[in-house]
Write a protein that binds this DNA or RNA. Structure first.
Lengths: 154, 154
DNA sequence: GAAAACAATATGCATTTTCATACACTTTCG
DNA sequence: CGAAAGTGTATGAAAATGCATATTGTTTTC
């Protein structure tokens, strides 16, 4: 038990603004919930944006760079480089579109697909556990509300 | 109307996994909602993490570096550098704790406080507008559910 | 059917970010 | 007390990031 301590604030409860500010709550909740799973990601040898790309490709194999950037919530030039790295690691491959030679489509390799399957399964387990933890906390409203928000803002 | 186009997917609706994955919904919703306001931030000459720090200090003036890092959702060594920059710009100042000389407390300067007041006011307006847009979308459940989540995971 | 406008991806470069760890100080404990 | 363990902040260096823009290809317009 520290003695000299009279910290400015050791809980968050005195706050006025941020603790009731929607944009903060969204960021903080995303952060808190995701961090739990990010250890799993890193143990699989991936960084978070790479996992996001893998998960998006799981649903949208063959997506274009631009689509994928939007889906995975990363800026395009950054995605280009992430994809190059993932290609070097054999997780994905790129293929030009012969109809429109500007376009580059990205596909999961077999290795990449195995990894994606594995991590998606783990993500679903983690999610189930998380939702269980959140029982009686209004968590049942969470997904629909978030989906509606995305709908309206998308 | 493009003709040669048979894109893999131009809406998000075919997806299986991510579009119903809580961690993705949280990240995407946070992203979508925040991006709206981030223009305001940049027009004020701040980058997003600086605004977060300012907002946290608005509530917790005098917080320690470590506390502030946790509140503002940034890694400690990064916060140290953000604070140094903000100090150089005259937005905040640092003050050692005489009782515990390891600790550094961060305070809003007058300039910083003015800016914080201004931006917090704008944030609240933006939030009100956003919530209005989200009427009948279950938005009224959003804050409580997020707060509960943070409570349980904090 | 050119020229201009637009679109998709890549890249150069300055800056930021991360990670590990150093450093200074404090608390604990034998 | 004094060594060891623990905390809080800073920093060096490698890597990632963002921004503006180049490059290449496509659509539109006249």
């Amino acid at each position: 038990m520290p003695s000299i301590d009279q910290p400015v604030d050791n809980t968050d409860d005195k706050s006025d603004f941020v603790s009731d500010y929607l944009l903060y709550l969204l960021a903080a909740a995303s952060d808190a919930a995701s961090n739990q799973f990010h250890d799993t990601i890193r143990k699989a040898g991936l960084r978070v944006p790479e996992w996001r790309v893998l998960a998006c490709l799981y649903d949208h194999d063959g997506a274009m760079i631009t689509e994928l950037a939007r889906l995975a919530l990363v800026e395009q030039s950054r995605l280009t480089r992430i994809i190059l790295q993932m290609e070097n690691r054999g997780l994905v491959y790129r293929k030009g579109n012969p109809q429109d030679k500007r376009r580059v489509h990205v596909y999961l390799s077999n290795t990449g697909r195995d990894l994606a399957n594995d991590l998606v399964a783990q993500a679903q387990i983690h999610e189930a556990t998380l939702l269980e933890t959140l029982q009686n906390s209004g968590a049942e409203h969470l997904k629909p509300a978030l989906q509606a928000l995305l709908q309206k803002l998308g």
